[in-house]
């Protein structure tokens, strides 16, 4: 059973629908015991970092997440919350990845948010098994994780290279939305279900 962590984040339904299309049995829950017992955990998210962290802390979910040892996938804001700090609302985050989440610098000529389909390269790890280099994924975000030794793929926005995904032990994070990235995105989710 897959636990999808329920918190005050937008468009969790898309993740549930994508799992349903893959035939996976998933529950949307904020119950610590259900999350601990799940075979795999998905941490989705569209929203604001400091509000999301407050919600997780208030419900004791931050410590629960840090202590999990089953495969865990954070998506978009979910991945950013797995880092140590976010400039969005200047908030301490879960600290699974020792990275600072930064706001895209303004006045560089590119549009913010970074929205649309972008190519992802230097792929490594089980999530990208069978995924061709330079595949397109759908991104929508205004904050980013700089290049990191935990990066399992990178992308580039008008010359700024940053982490498109991170991994460390049982913890995986993707900045893009696999649930909105057509066939390539489905491969990522299937790999998470079958290869981690």
């Amino acid at each position: 059973m897959i636990a999808v962590i329920k918190y005050n984040a937008g468009n969790i339904l898309s993740v549930m629908c994508a799992l349903e299309r893959l035939g996976a049995e998933a529950v949307l829950t904020d119950d610590p015991e259900t999350i601990k017992k799940a075979e795999r955990v998905i941490f989705p998210g569209v929203g604001e970092a400091s509000t999301a962290m407050r919600y997780l802390d208030e419900r004791g979910l931050s410590d629960v997440i840090r202590g999990l040892d089953q495969p865990f996938l954070g998506i978009c804001l979910g991945m950013q919350l797995m880092c140590s700090f976010s400039e969005e609302g200047n908030t301490e985050c879960l600290g699974i990845f020792p990275e600072h989440v930064r706001l895209f610098p303004k006045g560089q000529g590119y549009k913010i948010p970074h929205v649309g389909w972008n190519t992802v390269s230097r792929l490594s790890g089980p999530l990208f098994s069978g995924v061709p280099d330079e595949s397109y994924f759908y991104f929508v975000h205004s904050y980013f994780v700089p290049l990191s030794s935990d990066a399992s793929s990178v992308t580039s926005y008008d010359g700024l290279d940053f982490s498109a995904s991170l991994s460390r032990g049982n913890f995986y994070g993707v900045q893009f939305h696999p649930e909105k990235s057509g066939e390539a995105g489905e491969m990522i989710l299937r790999n998470f279900l079958e290869r981690t």
Binding site: H177, K180, G182, G185
Partner: peptide, 8 residues
């Protein structure tokens, strides 16, 4: 639609 397609 959200059950059917996987693009935004």
């Amino acid at each position: 639609v959200s059950h059917t397609i996987s693009i935004p």
